[in-house]
Amino acid sequence: MNIWVYILRRTLYVIPILFGVTFIVFLLFNVLNDDPTYQLLGKHASEERAMELRKELGLDKPLYMQYLDVVKSAVTFDFGRSWKSKQLITEMIREGAPVSLSFTLPGFFISTVLGILISLLVAYYRGTYIDKFVVFVCICGMSISSLAYILFCQWYFAYELGLFEISGYEYGFPDFLPYVSLPIIIWLILSLGPDVRFFRTIMLDEIYQDYVRTARAKGLSEPYVLLKHVLKNALIPIITYVVIQIPFLLLGALLIETFFSIPGLGGILVKAIYDQDFPVVKAMTVFISVGYIIFNLLSDILYTVVDPRVRLK
């Protein structure tokens, strides 16, 4: 099949998925959920004001019309304004997403590369004390709450040693770097454990394959076998694991952003759910769904690049 036809077909999947996602979100917020107007009006709400606000927000329309409005905004990507802050939602995303990416992307990139390298190393030393030590460290690292890392690193490295800024953010390169350094390091600590364990499993799956034995029998060195054969054949599960995480990088990291006062998108969805801010919930859900579909498609295409035997159907 022509790759373009495949891309078109997969892109068309967006339509039913968006319908499904918007329908579930609509159902949760507009049908099953409580009337949000009282919360928006605060402590001085009254029946009359709630009625006026419902009219202003379009909540007095028949349900099917409200749902059509949701679909329309998902299709046009015009999500309007937040009910809570009155800010333009696309502007909130446009301002917040690059900020989140300014620390999630480097953190993600470094942890992925380091994770792969460490997993190759432990695959090389499989069964030895080095392998066992790395697995032990990974498990210990994963067992500690992310909050503990954040609190400790912020207190010790930023406050006590003064090596980093305690919190804050400056827009523009390179001004933001002093503020994202410690968050990146924490991201690395948090990601390396699960990454190394996952990549190690993949590498060990590959390392016992026949082609590896053949390569060794041909007299190839172990590093060559690992890098040229094992790594290349392990790329498909790695791509699936890695690429699918990319859209979520845009959403930042709730705890890191909150503790370091980074003005990204971390927590925007959680806060919107808490505030019953339906337009923001709708926008973020559509945003995540579309991102997920796009990067899923990208990972499919990448399969064909790394393994010519893979055919898109």
Partner: peptide
């Protein structure tokens, strides 16, 4: 492998260096 490792080390070092710089 050496090149990749070097790139990661440089990136990490630059983050640490810039991280240690003080604000205005």
């Amino acid at each position: 492998m050496k090149k990749s490792l070097l790139a990661v080390v440089i990136l990490a070092a630059s983050i640490a260096l810039v991280g240690c710089t003080k604000k205005k």
